[in-house]
Design a protein around this nucleic acid. Structure first.
Lengths: 215, 215, 215, 215
DNA sequence: GATGAATGAGGATTCATTCAT
DNA sequence: TATGAATGAATCCTCATTCAT
C-alpha cells in the first residue's frame, strides 16, 4: 500500500531500508515534476515518470496509488514554497499601506510565476479537472487570507470578512493574469506594465491605508 | 477534409444532401457537448461522442479532424451565446454608472455560469492545456473590451487603455470566481454575497461615475 | 460492374457518355500509377488514388473492382511498352551473334529499368504477393521467348527448348539484377560494369555464333 | 525497448526470468513465421501473430517494436539456416569442377526452396518493399561470395572480381527461378529438368574446370 | 455516369495495473 | 524492497465498400 514517506514516527533511524525507500520516493517525485512540466497533467503517463526516474513501473505503485497521488506530492511542494517564499510578506506589504511596499510584494509574487512557468499548465489543468486539487488550491488561498492579521486589523470587525474575501479575489485574479500573460503568453503585456496596472488596481480595490489612498 | 457546415455556397438549395450533412454535423456537436460535460476534455474520447451521437466512428472523421476540432465548435457556440446574451449590456451597465445597473449586469452574467456549469470544467481544462483554446478565450476578452465605447468614452484618451485593461482583469476575476464557486463549489459562498462583494469590488476598481465613487 | 473500356464493340461512336467514361477511366489509371510509384503496392490505398485523380471514391468502383484491378491496367501498359520498345530487337541481337549487337540490345533494356524505376517496387511487390500478377509476368516471358525465331532457328530442333529456357533465365536474371542495382541500389555496381558483366555472361551462356565463342 | 534475447550477459543463470522471457520471445517468432507463411508480409497483422502465439497484444510490443522487427528475426533464422545447411558446400562443389559435384550442390539448394516454400512469398514481398530487408539479402549474397576461396583461387587475381560477381548472378537467378517454379508455380517445369538446365547453365557460365568445359 | 455521406471492420499502439520472483 | 514480464482494456484512425441522390 502506498504511503507517504512522512512516517517519521519513532524518530529513530530505521536506517537502510527506510532510507532507500525515501530515496526512490524522491526520485519518483522529482521525475514526476519533470514529466508534468513537459507533458502537462493529462498527457503525462506513469510510464513517462518511471522512465525518467529510472525506476521500474511496478516500483511506482509501491509508493503511489496513481498519477493523482504523485501529482499531489509535486503540487504540495510547490504550494509550500509559494507560501513560504513569496506570500510570506503579503501581510506586511498590505499593512504598510504604501504603493511601494505593495509593488515590491507583487514583484516578488511575479517571480514565482516566472520560476514555476513550466509546471503551471499542469497545475491549472489539474485544478480544472480534479476537484481534489482545486480544493487544495482553495485551502492555500484560505491559509493565505488567514495570515493577514496586520492588514485586517485595520478594519472594524464587521468589515473584515469582506476585506479578506477581496484580497483572495485579487490574488485569484493575479494568478489568472500571470498564467495567461507569463506562462501561456496569450495575454500580451509587458512585465512592468502588468505590475503597474495590477498595483494600481490593488490600491483601489483594497483601499489600504485609507487616508493616503490613490489620489 | 472536415469543413464547417457554413459553406452556404450558392445559396440555392442543395437541400437534401446539404441538410443531411448538417444534421449529422449537429448530432455530433451536440453529442460532443454532452460528453465534454460529463467527462471533461481530456477524458472525453471520440468513441464516447460517436456512441452518444449514434453515429459511426468513421463518420466523425468525415466531419471533424479530431477531438480538438469538435471542441472548437462546441466552445464557439458557447462563446457566441455568452457574448450575445450575457455581456451584450456590459457597456450600458458600466456607462450607467449606478451600482444597480452594474449589479443587474453581473447578475445576468452569473446566470451564464450557472447555465454552463456542466461544460465549464472541460473548457477550463482545455484552456489550461491548449494554447489555441486559450487564445480564443483571450480574443473574446478583447472583443468584449472593444465594445465598451460608452464606458471608455467617459475617460480621457490617455487613460482608456488602462481602463480597458482593468475591465478585462475584472472579468477574468469574475470568471475564476464563478468557476470555483458556482461550478466546482470549492469556493463556498452564497450567491447573493458573491454578487454583493463582486459588485462593490467593481465599483471601487472601475470607479465608474467618478463623482458617486464608493459613496 | 466495372468493365474495361476496351468495349469498342460496334465501332461507331457512342460519343459523349462513352467518351466521358473513358476519360475518367484514364484519369484513374494515371493517378493509380503515380500512387503506386509513390507508395508501392501494398501501401497504396484506393483513397490515395481517387484523391490524386480528383475523382469521387465511389466513382472508382464504377470502373474497377478493386486495387488489384487498376494495378493490372497499369501493369499491362508497362508490359506493353516494355515488349514493344525494349525487347523488340532481342531476337535480332541474339541472331546477329556479335557481342556488340547484344550489348546494344542490353543497353536498351537497361534504359527501361531506369525509366520505370519508380514503379518497379510496386510491380515486384505485387509479383511476390499476387499469383495473378506473377502469372502475367510469366506470360510476358513466354511471349518474349516465342519471338526468338531467328535465334532459335540456329539450333537443331531438339535443342531449341533448352535454348529458349536459357534465354528466359537470363532475362529473369537481368530483371533481378536491374531491380537490385538500379532501382533499389542495394547491389552497388557501375552501369557500364554491369553491362559488361552481363554481356559477357550472356555470351557464355547463350553461346551464340558458336564459332566466335567467348573470345 | 525490445531487445534480442541474445543478452547472455553474465553467463550465469538468471534462469527463471531469462528463460521465461526467451520462451515467449520464441513463441512470438514462431507464431510470426506461421502467420507470414499464411498471409504474406503485408497482410500479416500483429493481431494475427499474437492470436497464434496465444500472447497478449501488448506483450508483443514488449519484445518487438513492430512487424518489421519480428520479420527480421524470422528472416534472420532463415538466412542462418540457408547459409549453414545449404550453401555451405558451394565452394567445394564449384572447386571440384565436375558437373556431378555441382549438381549435387544445386540439388541440395533446391531442397531449401522446397522446404521454405511457404515463407518465401513473404520474404520476396518484404524484399521488394523494404530496402532494409533487401540490403540484408544482399549481405548474405556477399557473404556467400566471400567464402568461395577454393573456386576463386583457380583464377588469376584480376579475374576474380568478375568471377565472384558471376556466381552471385547465378545464385540470384536460381533464387528467382525457384521462387517462380517451386513456390509460386507460375513457371511450370519439372524438378529434374530444372536441375539439368540450371546445372548446364552454371557449367557454361562459370566455366569451372576450364579444360573439361561443357562438351 | 458521378457523387457525398455513411458505415463496419480492423489495425497499430499505449496505458494502468498486477503477478511471480 | 524492487523488478521483469505479462495482460486487458482502450483509443485513435484508416480503409474498402455501399447507398441514396
Amino acid at each position: 500500500m502506498p504511503s507517504s514517506p512522512a512516517d517519521e514516527s519513532t524518530g529513530a533511524l530505521k536506517s537502510v531500508r527506510e532510507e532507500q525507500r525515501l530515496m526512490t520516493w524522491r526520485r519518483i517525485v522529482k521525475a514526476a515534476r519533470r514529466v508534468f512540466e513537459e507533458h502537462g497533467y493529462g498527457q503525462a503517463s506513469i510510464g513517462d515518470i518511471t522512465k525518467v526516474a529510472r525506476v521500474n513501473r511496478a516500483t511506482f505503485y509501491l509508493h503511489f496509488a496513481n498519477k493523482a497521488a504523485v501529482f499531489n506530492e509535486v503540487y504540495a511542494e510547490v504550494r509550500e514554497q509559494q507560501s513560504s517564499h513569496y506570500w510570506a510578506m503579503l501581510d506586511e506589504g498590505l499593512t504598510a499601506g504604501t504603493k511601494d511596499a505593495l509593488r515590491s510584494v507583487l514583484d516578488r509574487a511575479l517571480a514565482w510565476w516566472e520560476e514555476q512557468a513550466a509546471l503551471l499548465p499542469a497545475i491549472h489543468e489539474a485544478m480544472a479537472s480534479d476537484l481534489e486539487v482545486a480544493s487544495r488550491w482553495k485551502d492555500q488561498l484560505d491559509q493565505l487570507a488567514g495570515e493577514l492579521h496586520g492588514y485586517l486589523g485595520q478594519f472594524p470587525e464587521e468589515e473584515r470578512d469582506a476585506r479578506r474575501l477581496r484580497v483572495q479575489l485579487m490574488v485569484m485574479q493575479l494568478d489568472q493574469l500571470c498564467f495567461r500573460a507569463i506562462v501561456q503568453k496569450v495575454f500580451v503585456i509587458d512585465r512592468d506594465v502588468l505590475l503597474d496596472v495590477v498595483c494600481d488596481l490593488w490600491v483601489d480595490s483594497l483601499q489600504f491605508s485609507r487616508e493616503s489612498g490613490t489620489s
